[in-house]
């Protein structure tokens, strides 16, 4: 859904280059600049940009909510237990 407009623009950009073409237009610096400008403009106003604007607040709300600290503790707990096992190993490895 988000990719389609950008893809369309790529297709149209290549179409323009082929149909207008002639080797001179397709490879001239002016044509290349125009292609790049067109592609950039279309990408900037494509729905992918707007999708991020509408999606990001929902994602942030899903992360930084009342469950955040509990979920952080859940994520860290195995590492804490592992450190509690490894730390004595470091100091108690002396033999002979």
């Amino acid at each position: 859904m988000f990719v389609i407009p950008a893809r369309r623009s790529l297709e149209s950009a290549s179409t323009i280059r082929v149909t207008d073409s002639g080797a001179f237009l397709a490879h001239s610096p002016a044509m290349r600049r125009l292609n790049a400008l067109t592609l950039t403009s279309v990408l900037l106003v494509s729905s992918a940009v707007f999708a991020c604007e509408t999606c990001r607040p929902a994602v942030e709300a899903g992360i930084f909510n009342e469950h955040f600290w509990g979920r952080l503790a859940i994520t860290l707990l195995p590492f804490g237990v592992i450190l509690a096992v490894v730390t004595p190993l470091h100091f108690l490895g002396r033999e002979r």
């Binding site: 592992i82 096992v85 490894v86 730390t87 190993l89 470091h90 100091f91 108690l92 490895g93 002396r94 033999e95 002979r96």
Partner: peptide, 16 residues
């Protein structure tokens, strides 16, 4: 002889 430093290093790397 102290094997502890190698043990902890290896285990940490293995965990990671």
């Amino acid at each position: 002889m102290n094997r502890g430093p190698l043990l902890s290093a290896g285990v940490m790397l293995g965990v990671g």
